[in-house]
């Protein structure tokens, strides 16, 4: 565990990390208002935004680290903690709500053993909620890694999860 924690602390801060981030920074060089795309591309590299990577971006772009932290915590698309290999988004929008979206979320929480917003210990799943996926006709729905699963019932959940390793 200790070594894993140390690893997390240096992620984004090694020379190899800097080389990867440099490519992203180069892509947006000289463009005003490019902080968000830089953060998005960086998150694509790691699945989340490692602190060291943010500190490096601050140093290289001249954006204060406090302001970058402000941006990252403002937008729900950004994540400061490592995320699972599979991202589950359970819809809690109005249509899903009236068709049992809450029960689906509770079933998922039980099945994965984590609350919404958290990642399983084995890093297999991150469970999130979302306000509306625009697939109300299939309510209640959830998305796993961008694939939409509709007309959900608690019974079919284990079968769906089994497909994602």
């Amino acid at each position: 565990m200790a070594s894993q924690a140390t690893n997390i602390a240096v992620v984004g801060g090694t020379d190899a990390d800097h080389a990867k981030i440099d490519i992203i920074l180069k892509k947006y060089e000289g463009q005003k208002g490019s902080l968000i795309p830089i953060l998005q591309d960086t998150q694509d590299l790691y699945n989340y935004l490692p602190r060291k990577a943010l500190e490096y971006i601050a140093e290289q772009t001249g954006n204060p680290i406090s302001a970058i932290y402000g941006v990252v915590t403002f937008y729900s698309q950004f994540h400061l903690n490592p995320r699972g290999r599979n991202i589950v988004r359970v819809c809690q929008g109005t249509a899903c709500h009236v068709r049992g979206g809450k029960t689906i979320l509770e079933t998922m929480e039980k099945a994965l053993g984590v609350k919404a917003g958290h990642t399983t210990d084995d890093a297999r799943f991150t469970l999130e909620t979302i306000a509306c996926l625009g697939a109300c006709g299939m309510a209640p729905v959830m998305q796993i890694n961008g694939e939409t699963h509709g007309r959900l019932t608690p019974e079919i959940i284990p079968e769906i999860l089994a497909k994602y390793k």
Binding site: R51, P64, I65, S66, A67, I68, Y69, G70, T73, F74
Partner: peptide, 26 residues
């Protein structure tokens, strides 16, 4: 801190009810 002192210690962080004035990483 930002405009006069240039130190940028503080920024708004989070959102809505959870919005706060925070130093980097709180």
């Amino acid at each position: 801190c930002r405009d006069v002192q240039g130190m940028n210690v503080y920024s708004f962080a989070r959102r809505g009810f959870h919005a706060m004035v925070a130093a980097a990483f709180e």
